[in-house]
Design a protein around this nucleic acid. Structure first.
Ligand SMILES: [Mn+2]
Ligand SMILES: [Mn+2]
Ligand SMILES: [Mn+2]
Ligand SMILES: [Mn+2]
Lengths: 219, 219
DNA sequence: ATTAAAATTTAGATTAACCTAAAAATAAAT
DNA sequence: ATTTATTTTTAGGTTAATCTAAATTTTAAT
C-alpha cells in the first residue's frame, strides 16, 4: 500500500517533468513539498526500491510507468473532486484546491468512476486544467500565456498557472474568470507590463509575472 | 493538528462508551482498531497529554469534552458521506463504510456544512444510524432488537448493528433492507433461533446472533 | 584550469505509531 | 484468602518520514 507522502512525491515529480525536463532534481521536489532536500533524497531512494521512479545519484528522479500511472490517477482524482466542489457544492474556485489535495488520496476503485459519471465526465476542472482519462491521457489545448499576445490582440481566459487562493482572489476582484475576454491595449517596454481591457470594460495593468500566469485562447 | 490515527482512537473510545460504559479499556480499543494493547496504552497516554481523553492507569480512557466533539464530528462526517455515496453516487449500502472511513478524515470547516445542505440535511444514514447535528446532538429512536419481539409481533427494520459487507450482503440476499417488515412466526426454544416472515413473503430462520443485530420499530 | 557556488547526498537524530515479550496490577475462581 | 487468569503497563525495538549539519559531487564563473 502506498502512503500519502509517497503519493505526494510522485505527483511532484510528475509536475516537474510533465513539460520539458526529463528528470526532477532534489531541490525542485523539496520546493514543491516544503521539505528539505535531504528528506527528498531519502524518499526517492525508497521510491526507487519500489520501482516507482528511476533514479541515478546526483541526476534526479523520473517516474516509472507504474509511478506515472499513480501520479496521473491522483491528478484525475484531484481535478474531478474540484469539479464536484464547484458544480455540486457551489464552492468558488479559490477555495477548492486545498480540499482536493486531501480528497485525491481516497482509495476506491469504484468511487472515481461513479464520481466521473455523476459529474457528466467533465474534461476540464474549474481552473481550466484538463482532466486525464482513466487511461491517463491528457487533452492538450493550444493556449498562450497572455504576455505572448501582441497589442490589439484579444484572448479568452482558458486557464491559470497557479491555484493559490491569493492569486485567484486577485482575479476575482478584477472580475476575471474562465471565459473572460482580455484585450491587449499596450505593452509597456520599460517594465514589461501590459495594459489590458477586461471584457470590454475596465482596464488594468498586469506586471509580466501575472500576464505570464494567465493562459488564453486567441480570438 | 490531529492525526488520522488519533482520530480513530477517539472514535473507538466514543463507540465503546456511547451506551452504558463510562470508560474504554485498552483491550476493547485494541479490538476495534486491530492493534495491540501496548500500542493503545501508548496512544491514550499521548491523547491524555493533549487533554482529549481523561485517563487513569489501569482504569481505561474516556473522552474529554474536546475529544467528544472531535469524535461526534467524525461520526457526522462519516454518515453524511455515506448518504452522499448512496443517494448521489448510487452505491449500495454494503460498499460504503470503508470509503466513508477514509472520507471522514477530510478536514474543512466549510465542506461538511455544504455537503449537509446539498444532501437535504438528512437525519439518518443508509444503515439507519442517526446523523448527529453540528452541535453533536444525536436523535434517539426507540428501537428494539428483533430478538426481543414476541411471537406474532411485527417490526419494521430501522437499523443494523454492524456495517460489515458480509453481513449486509447476507441481508441483501434475503431482500431485507431498511423499511422491510419482519413478522415473528415462532421463537424456537432449544437453540434460541427465530422463524421470521419477510415482507409477508418468504420465511427464514435467524440464529439469535442475527436477530439481535437487527433493529426494528414495533408495528 | 582553478576556484567558487549550488545542488545533492550522507551522517546522525527525532517523532509518531506501531510491535513483541516480560512485568505488574486487577479481577475471577477455587 | 490464595491461587489463577485476564488485563494493562513497561521495556526495548522497528519503520516511515522528517530534520540539521557536514561531506561530496556537479555546475558555473573567473
Ligand atoms: Mn488544484
Ligand atoms: Mn485545478
Ligand atoms: Mn459506516
Ligand atoms: Mn453507516
Amino acid at each position: 500500500m502506498i502512503s500519502f507522502a509517497e503519493e505526494n512525491y510522485l505527483k511532484a515529480i510528475f509536475k516537474i517533468t510533465e513539460r520539458d525536463r526529463k528528470s526532477a532534481g532534489t531541490n525542485a521536489i523539496a520546493g514543491i513539498l516544503n521539505t528539505s532536500a535531504a528528506s527528498v533524497t531519502d524518499m526517492i531512494q525508497r521510491l526507487s526500491e519500489k520501482e516507482l521512479v528511476s533514479y541515478e545519484k546526483y541526476k534526479g528522479a523520473s517516474l516509472s510507468p507504474a509511478g506515472n500511472k499513480i501520479a496521473t490517477d491522483l491528478i484525475r482524482k484531484h481535478r474531478l473532486w474540484e469539479v464536484f466542489l464547484v458544480d455540486k457544492l457551489h464552492f468558488s474556485w479559490e477555495k477548492i484546491h486545498d480540499i482536493a489535495e486531501q480528497m485525491e488520496h481516497i482509495k476506491s476503485d469504484d468511487l472515481i468512476d461513479k464520481l466521473d459519471n455523476y459529474l457528466g465526465n467533465p474534461r476540464f476542472d474549474p481552473h481550466g486544467d484538463p482532466i486525464p482519462t482513466k487511461e491517463g491521457k491528457f487533452m492538450i489545448r493550444n493556449q498562450y500565456s497572455l504576455d505572448l499576445l501582441l497589442e490589439g490582440e484579444t484572448g479568452v481566459l482558458v486557464g491559470v498557472r497557479h491555484h493559490e487562493t491569493d492569486f485567484l482572489n486577485y482575479l476575482n476582484e478584477l472580475k476575471i474568470a474562465l471565459g473572460t475576454e482580455l484585450r491587449i491595449l499596450k505593452k509597456l517596454e520599460f517594465d514589461k507590463s501590459t495594459r489590458v481591457r477586461i471584457n470590454n470594460a475596465e482596464e488594468v495593468i498586469f506586471p509580466k509575472k501575472i500576464a505570464r500566469d494567465l493562459y488564453v485562447k486567441k480570438k
